[in-house]
Design a binder for these strands. Structure first.
Length: 191
DNA sequence: CGATTTTGACCGGCGC
DNA sequence: GCGCCGGTCAAAATCG
């Protein structure tokens, strides 16, 4: 927890992949989330549409092909320190606002395998959405990275994956070249 | 048998 | 102060 901040997941290989098809810059920006008037966790979304080529991004087994990623840098204000039990963190040290990054993906499956191992720890129904939202946490010890997967009610074909925190350990699985893509995504979103 | 999912309860924040 | 709401916990169930 709170172990982000410039800590890159120094993966063995793919240290400096120069040209990746992940163009997180450019394209039109459209806000898809902030449709409701309620206080959303997303503020000022900037979805960039980058048409990924039909690479062998074989995630689970069917996964998505020809999907369109939309990165979203979110300057959230999520800073809560509740935690009744578990590791007693220092109190009132610094309100760290964990950066969250939302990725909009066009896929048929909810679970996009990004190479890390996740354990589901919750699921809640979302308002204005008949699809539930799933909460996952990285099973790596000391890695408090969380992510939540949600499906747009408007477009059931679109899956929004919101990452919270930064991995500080290498990826477990060698998910083909998707590892490179994931690395790039983290680098770009390391802001 | 260990790891993970499921699911309702619980908790803190915020709006009224 | 109360109730809603989003997020998390934890015990039981399920999976491999």
């Amino acid at each position: 927890m709170e172990n982000y901040g410039g800590v890159f997941p120094c993966s063995s290989s793919a240290s400096s992949a120069p040209q990746l098809s992940l163009n997180v810059l450019d394209s039109n920006a459209y806000s898809e989330f902030q449709a409701a008037d309620k206080s959303h966790g997303f503020l000022g979304l900037t979805a960039n549409d980058m048409g990924l080529p039909n690479s062998e991004v074989n995630l689970m087994n069917d996964a998505c092909r020809g999907q369109s990623f939309a990165s979203t840098v979110t300057t959230d204000q999520t800073d809560r320190e509740m935690k009744s039990s578990s590791s007693g963190k220092k109190k009132g040290e610094k309100k760290i606002r964990k950066p969250r990054f939302a990725f909009e993906t066009r896929s048929q499956v909810d679970i996009l395998d990004d190479g890390y191992r996740w354990r589901k720890y919750g699921q809640k129904a979302v308002k204005n959405n008949r699809f539930p939202r799933s909460y996952y946490r990285c099973t790596h010890q000391g890695c408090g990275v969380k992510k939540q997967v949600q499906r747009l009610s408007k477009d059931e074909a679109v899956v929004v994956t919101t990452y919270e925190g930064m991995h500080s350990h290498p990826i477990e699985k060698s998910t083909d070249n998707f590892e490179h893509i994931l690395n790039q995504m983290q680098i770009y979103t390391a802001f």
